[in-house]
Amino acid sequence: MMRNMIAIALLITMQACSASDSWERVMIRGSAEANDPVLKQVREFEKTGQVKDVTVLESFPVQIWLTASKDTIEALQKIPRKTATDQ
C-alpha cells in the first residue's frame, strides 16, 4: 500500500515537472488603454493557472513579467494594443 502511494506521488511529481518545463518567463507589454485588455487577460489566465509568477511593473503601458506556456504567451501577444501615440 505504501509502495503504491509513493509510486503515485512520484508519477504526479514527474508529470508536474515535465509540464512546467515547457513554460518560459517572458515580458508582455500591456496596452495604453484605461482598462488594459492585456492585463485583464493575464489576470484571468492567472486565476485558471495558465500563467504564474506574475509581476506588473509600474510603467505606461504596463510591463508584465510572467511564466506561461508558449501557447498562452502567443495568445497574450495577439491581443490588440493601443500605444501612447494612439491616444
Rank of each mutant, 00 (worst) to 15 (best):
L57S: 10
K40F: 13
L76V: 03
E44Q: 14
A84E: 15
E46D: 14
K82C: 06
D53S: 14
L11M: 13
K47E: 06
F60P: 05
E44N: 11
V42W: 02
D71R: 08
V56L: 11
M5I: 03
E24S: 10
E33Q: 12
Q87M: 15
I73Y: 03
S22K: 13
D71Q: 08
C17F: 09
R29W: 09
A19L: 04
A32P: 09
Q63K: 07
E44V: 05
I28G: 06
I12P: 08
I8C: 10
D53I: 05
D71K: 13
S31F: 05
N4S: 14
A9K: 05
N4A: 14
E33S: 08
T55V: 13
T13V: 11
T67E: 07
A7T: 00
A9H: 05
N4L: 14
A9P: 05
M27K: 11
T72K: 00
G30T: 02
S59L: 14
E24F: 02
S18P: 00
K78S: 11
T85K: 12
M14N: 05
D86N: 15
T83W: 11
T55N: 07
K47D: 05
W65M: 09
K70P: 10
T67W: 03
Q41R: 15
G49I: 00
A9C: 05
T83F: 08
M1R: 09
E33C: 04
E33F: 04
M5V: 01
L57G: 00
S18C: 08
T83V: 11
A84F: 13
T55W: 03
